[in-house]
Nucleic acid binder design. Structure first.
Lengths: 230, 230
DNA sequence: AAGTGGTCTAGACCACCTT
DNA sequence: AGGTGGTCTAGACCACTTA
């Protein structure tokens, strides 16, 4: 009997999680080719488990594969970004109405707790934690009615936009707006005011999209003017 | 130079499309195990391309895989079905408001055209066509603002519920309700009445869910009483 | 302890691009 | 034609189950 380090995980799962993480944290960027031969060297396993990992990531939308041409990290332009935020609005505006209709004091307490941790993350200047807590907050809204499938879709939209958020950062005013907006949303939920919560969410998400799209356009302009190398 | 039958498609893509189709049309059912060795025999190719096809289908939600235990067709219980219909409501209630705000006569004309073909499909008793046209109608609402990602999500919820619809069929009254509901929705859109369109969509989808869930419960009861073999 | 069936590797194969 | 790199096969390997 030999030691077990394995815990029921297979190579393709491990590699999938590593590649996903490398994409989300910006190690592989937007449009980068993911060549099997490179990845074979990088991870020390053979081609097939890597291909399987890429197939799954394609299913999650992070990676694009085409026949006989291999894989690359999905390129995210402004139109695609806009689509992600529209999907978030659709899901959250709908689910927050349901939540507001039947939120308990405990639900509200949990949301306030996340809010507090967000304020700490901003004080500590941790964009990565802020992003995680933002998904936790919005996930509480969408998953509150035990709709795990909807929560998974929301989470995938975060995976797709997080690389850009990490890359472009956030101004202090933009960061401070997050807990302010969230506090107002929590109040509306606590008062069982679905329509107001829904409207506040919509405005909050519009603002988040505008901030990010502006930052993107700024970089694009810089590249065009040759100020930063592409 | 030899002849080309290939057209740039690879084995894993072909097999993926075949398996997807076999699931959607009910050849493989709800919960069936998909054993690689069976599929190797069935399709005459080796294990790896089949595994890749299954990985992709897992990404689409049709198949569930677990480490060292292989794949099976996702089992769809009432809770999961309910989640799919909630997601549809969230997407369509949101996007129909946008569409109603700026629908042209041409948009409305195209929707009426689909409506006409639905009536023909019902007259012809073709559940499969009816289902396709239903997705086409709802896809026009969600995709109208060029949100291909949202349209893709909607389409996946159809892939997941269609097998049950084909299995349980639909009473004549249930079938007739579809074009009636759709006509009312088109009218609200034509009059640029977003809130009404949104409410009508919500009711329409609630009705569709209730019909299907009832049929499912009926079969479950029959199995429990031993009237039909499981 | 054997059986079943999923997973991984090495290397052949083949599609597509460049010259 | 040659090069690059994605795809496929055969068979070994290994996790998990049943006896």
């Amino acid at each position: 009997m030999t030691e077990r380090f394995n815990l029921g995980r297979t190579n393709y799962q491990r590699v999938r999680d590593i590649i996903r993480n490398d994409i989300i944290t910006g190690q592989f960027r937007d449009g980068d080719r993911l060549k099997i031969s490179d990845l074979v060297g990088r991870y020390g396993i053979s081609a097939m488990p890597i291909r399987e990992a890429l197939q799954q990531l394609q299913g999650e939308g992070l990676v694009v594969m085409s026949a006989n041409r291999g894989a690359s990290v999905r390129r995210i332009d402004e139109h695609f970004l806009w689509q992600m935020y529209e999907i978030r609005k659709a899901l959250e505006m709908f689910f927050v109405v349901e939540l507001a209709g039947r939120a308990t004091a405990q639900d509200v307490g949990r949301m306030r707790d996340v809010l507090g941790r967000q304020e700490q993350a901003i004080a500590a200047g941790s964009e990565e934690n802020l992003q995680k807590l933002d998904l936790e907050f919005h996930g509480m809204i969408v998953g509150a009615t035990k709709n795990e499938a909807a929560a998974a879709i929301l989470s995938r939209t975060y995976d797709l936009t997080q690389p850009l958020r990490l890359r472009f950062g956030r101004s202090p005013e933009q960061a401070r707006r997050i807990p302010t907006d969230h506090r107002a949303i929590i109040e509306a939920i606590a008062q069982h005011d679905g329509p107001r919560a829904s409207r506040l969410i919509s405005e909050h998400i519009n603002g988040a999209f505008a901030d990010l799209a502006d930052a993107m356009r700024l970089e694009d302009d810089s590249i065009r003017k040759g100020l930063v190398k592409g």
